[in-house]
Design a protein around this nucleic acid. Structure first.
Ligand SMILES: [Mn+2]
Ligand SMILES: [Mn+2]
Ligand SMILES: [Zn+2]
Ligand SMILES: [Zn+2]
Lengths: 141, 141
DNA sequence: TTTTTTATCAGTAATCATTCCTATTAACGC
DNA sequence: GCGTTAATAGGAATGATTACTGATAAAAAA
């Protein structure tokens, strides 16, 4: 089958299937939340007690490159990961309870998508995050 | 004059006027670029040779709180600061030459602004960044 | 002006997320 | 199974940011 290659990363190396990488992907697929590297590390240790934090970081990078997961960096300066099965979306972040809600609407689908022409810019990726108070926290105040 | 208060931070402390803080604000006002804390530190050392990096960080936090400057955290995980005199805007980031261009258009001014109602969410701040290739780098390729 | 108060300072240590290093392990094509 | 080499565990190193501490200097009070 021409064109049917093994998955490769940007550096050209063939990506092997390992228990550690599969366990990380499983957690993100089942939990459908926005987990930090440390949180993923704690969760995956249940089934893979000997896994190291470095392995978690390396696999999160590979899985992001493969398009299996999304990496999002939020205002607190730490990255959070989620399964890509849900598809492209954005985020509403509560500054009180830290809860992160997905937002299906995308600004690039609107007139802002025209910025490429007017600014001579070729967009590849984009991020849109809204910070504020979620319904629960608003009612507590 | 009722209502004419001294500037205060969130914790209620009066904000004093110091050479160090003024020098940091001057650099961001004159350069009108997106500088990291380290870059600001190097620039301010010219006029304030004894300033410390900790002082730079503390003042960037205070100036952000006062609304005099904007803090933006980009995908590389480090914060960059700019004068707030230009007003609210967003960013086009070139992934080749790292140049950051301002984008006046704002997604919140479009239909996405309605998300507050449909998601029971009270938006306070938001960030929109587009990553891709600027005109210069696109023509080199 | 002189004194008092205390926000801010310089210097430095500590923290936190992330990346790098190296010897060892294990996936997978043959 | 065997050999190649991607991937791993463990730990050290890095880089950005924050916290601590005694000294300094803006405001405020006297
Ligand atoms: Mn999400
Ligand atoms: Mn800007
Ligand atoms: Zn989008
Ligand atoms: Zn906006």
């Amino acid at each position: 089958m021409p064109g049917d290659h093994k998955p490769k990363t940007a550096n050209g190396k063939i990506v092997r299937s390992t228990k550690q990488r599969q366990a990380i992907l499983d957690i993100l697929t089942k939990q459908q939340s926005h987990l930090s590297a440390e949180e993923i590390y704690q969760a995956v240790k249940i089934t893979q007690p000997r896994i190291s934090l470095g392995t978690v970081y390396r696999n999160l990078e590979i899985l992001t490159e493969l398009g299996s997961i999304y990496r999002n960096s939020f205002a607190d300066g730490k990255a959070r990961y989620e399964s890509a099965t849900i598809g492209h979306h954005h985020h509403l972040v509560c500054i009180n309870c830290q809860d992160i809600e997905n937002l299906t609407a995308c600004p690039m689908a609107q007139d802002i998508g025209n910025l490429a022409q007017s600014h001579d810019f070729e967009p590849l990726e984009h991020y849109f995050e809204v910070y504020g108070y979620c319904g629960k926290c608003r009612r507590k105040d």
